[in-house]
Simulated assay, not measured.
Amino acid sequence: MAICWIAQIYKHFPDPKPAYVADWSELPPWQQETDADIFERIEQSASTPG
């Protein structure tokens, strides 16, 4: 999720703030957990038929 976010930031912002493109290890725990939850939900939706 974080890699997709960073790619989109660079696509739309020529000079993004460093906090917008921080590496996974540099993210605060709450943001890592949020990103992981989003990824898990997308993964579940993709594997659910219909």
Results as ranks from 00 to 15, higher is better:
P28D: 13
P29E: 07
F13M: 06
D23I: 04
P28A: 12
A36D: 05
Q32E: 10
A7L: 12
M1G: 09
D37L: 14
F39I: 04
E40Y: 12
L27H: 00
I3C: 07
P29M: 02
E26M: 11
S25Y: 04
I3R: 15
E43S: 10
P49K: 03
P49H: 04
L27M: 09
V21S: 04
Y10H: 14
M1V: 12
W30G: 00
A7W: 09
Q31I: 00
R41V: 02
P28N: 11
D23V: 03
A7P: 01
P14M: 09
I6V: 15
D35R: 05
A19I: 05
W24E: 11
Q44L: 08
P14T: 11
D37A: 15
P16D: 05
F39L: 10
E40D: 15
S45R: 03
K17I: 02
A22C: 13
K17T: 07
Q32H: 05
L27G: 01
M1F: 11
P49A: 11
K17E: 15
M1N: 04
I9C: 07
T34L: 15
K17V: 05
P49L: 08
R41E: 13
P29T: 00
A2W: 00
Q8V: 03
I9P: 01
G50C: 10
S45M: 06
S47D: 10
F13S: 02
I42C: 07
W24R: 04
D37V: 05
A7Q: 12
F39C: 09
F13D: 10
G50S: 10
S45V: 01
I42P: 00
W5E: 03
A2D: 03
L27N: 01
S25F: 03
R41F: 05
A46S: 07
T48S: 14
Q44R: 10
Y10F: 14
S47C: 02
A46Q: 12
T34Q: 09
Q32K: 14
C4L: 14
Q44K: 12
R41W: 07
Q44Y: 07
Q32Y: 02
C4G: 14
Y20E: 11
E33V: 01
Q32P: 01
F13R: 06
M1K: 03
A46R: 08
A2Q: 06
C4V: 11
A7S: 13
D23K: 13
P29I: 01
I42Y: 00
A19K: 08
P28E: 13
E33M: 02
W24I: 07
P18Y: 05
D37H: 11
Y10G: 02
P28G: 09
T34D: 10
A22Y: 06
E40L: 14
A7K: 08
S25P: 01
F13Y: 10
E43M: 02
C4D: 13
Y20M: 15
Q31A: 02
P16F: 09
S45W: 02
A36T: 11
K17Y: 09
A19T: 11
A22M: 13
H12Y: 15
Q31M: 05
A19P: 00
G50H: 09
K17P: 04
Q31S: 00
I9F: 03
Y20W: 15
I3A: 15
E43T: 04
E40G: 04
D15P: 01
Q31P: 00
Q31F: 01
P28K: 10
D35A: 10
D15I: 06
P29H: 00
W24D: 13
Q44P: 01
S25T: 05
E33G: 04
D23N: 13
P29Y: 00
P28M: 08
S45E: 02
